[in-house]
Amino acid sequence: MATPSSLIAPVASAGRPAAGARIAGLGVYRPSTVISNEEAAVAAQVDADWIAQRVGVQERRYATAGESVLSMAVEAGSKALADAGATAEDVDVVILATCSMPSSMPNGAASVAAGIGCRSAAGFDVNAACSGFSHGLAVADALVRAGVAGGVLVVGSERMSDWVDAGDRNTGPIFADGAAAALVLPSDQPAIFPVAWGSDGDQAHLIAISAVTGHMEMAGRKVFRWTTTSLNSVIDEACRRAAMAPADLKAFVPHQANLRIIDALAQHIGSPGLVTATDLTDAGNTCGASVPLAFHALRQSGRVHSGDPVLLFGFGAGLTYAAQVVLCP
């Protein structure tokens, strides 16, 4: 068994404060089972076209028995390292953004670190639901810039199908499963800009796990109203903190909650050339994994390129929100 000092040494040697931090690589894992609107509609007792029109989802993916929050996170994290040309030895901290672990103890991040092979890394979970990845990215940026960590792996991984009732039209046809990760490394110049974040705990009851049923319940109309009336200022503040105007943005990657919400927020930005991620159509709402999944898909499409300024914006249960401008890896 390794001694405590030998375990701590790799993390403590992270180095001096950095001028900035950057996303060096992205990786994803999409479950194998595809659920069509026709299938989801039968369970929720709605019309398939109703799902497409009200939410914007055409199909979603559900994890099988062998695809857990942890296994999907390991796959996505490993791919992020490969994308960056890095190894497990480059990771000092693993942050797992999730709200769908089957149990609160043990945490998931330590197991993800072990699964990837970075066994000496610090590991902790962040539960900010749909804004979890954006919160984790902000923490990773701060750790790297402070010199506390030389490399931080941020993973969003969710099995929301475990927590929703397929017969509930407000949640069943919407939420889905998947994982995505980003490796954050030091940079000579900032490529992750200061986060604009906060919460509105007075409305936490709008999205919650029922103590009676054990299923997620959501007041959809009230959440829609909150996102489309209260979050525009967060976009403006994230741009201000990056010393950019909204028109400077090349792309917008919001939480993939609802296509009408995505359209409303993109219209507020108002840039005619803005590229907006709509991974929701094929992936559903994957909660804490949705922002990095959508970012990866947008990058893979070739519609954004290395160095392009991209606004990432997570929001959801809590109610929580976090937005930051990043430069595309």
Rank of each mutant, 00 (worst) to 15 (best):
P4I: 09
S6C: 11
V11N: 03
A12L: 15
R16Q: 10
A21G: 01
R22E: 11
A24F: 06
A24I: 05
V28N: 03
V28L: 00
P31T: 02
T33V: 06
S36L: 04
A41Y: 03
A41F: 02
Q45K: 13
V46L: 07
W50C: 09
W50S: 12
Q53L: 11
R54E: 15
G56H: 15
Q58Y: 14
E59T: 12
E59M: 09
Y62T: 02
G66R: 11
G66Q: 13
G66V: 03
G66L: 11
S68P: 07
V69R: 05
L70W: 07
S71V: 02
A73Y: 11
A82D: 12
T87V: 04
A88G: 08
D90K: 01
D92Y: 01
D92A: 09
V93T: 04
I95K: 04
L96H: 03
C99A: 15
S100E: 00
S103F: 07
S104M: 13
M105A: 14
M105V: 14
N107I: 05
G108E: 05
G115H: 03
R119D: 15
S120H: 13
F124W: 14
D125T: 06
D125R: 04
F133A: 00
F133S: 01
H135I: 09
L137M: 03
A138D: 12
A140S: 04
L143T: 02
V144L: 02
A146R: 12
L153Y: 07
L153S: 08
V155W: 11
M160S: 04
W163K: 02
V164G: 01
A166N: 06
G167E: 01
R169F: 07
G172A: 12
F175R: 09
G178E: 10
A182I: 12
L185E: 14
L185K: 14
S187V: 14
P190G: 13
D200L: 07
A204Q: 04
I207M: 15
S210G: 12
A211K: 04
G214F: 10
M216N: 02
E217V: 08
M218I: 04
G220Y: 06
R221S: 08
K222C: 01
V223S: 06
T227Y: 05
T228V: 15
T229K: 03
S230H: 06
L231F: 06
N232E: 05
R241E: 10
P246R: 02
A247F: 00
L249K: 08
L249W: 00
F252S: 01
H255C: 14
Q256D: 13
I261K: 06
D263I: 01
A264L: 03
A264C: 06
A277M: 05
D282Y: 05
A283F: 11
N285V: 01
T286C: 15
V291P: 00
L293C: 08
A297E: 05
G307F: 09
P309K: 01
V310Q: 09
F313E: 05
G316W: 08
G316Y: 07
T320A: 13
T320N: 14
Y321M: 10
Y321F: 15
A323N: 11
V325P: 12
C328G: 11
C328L: 15
P329L: 11
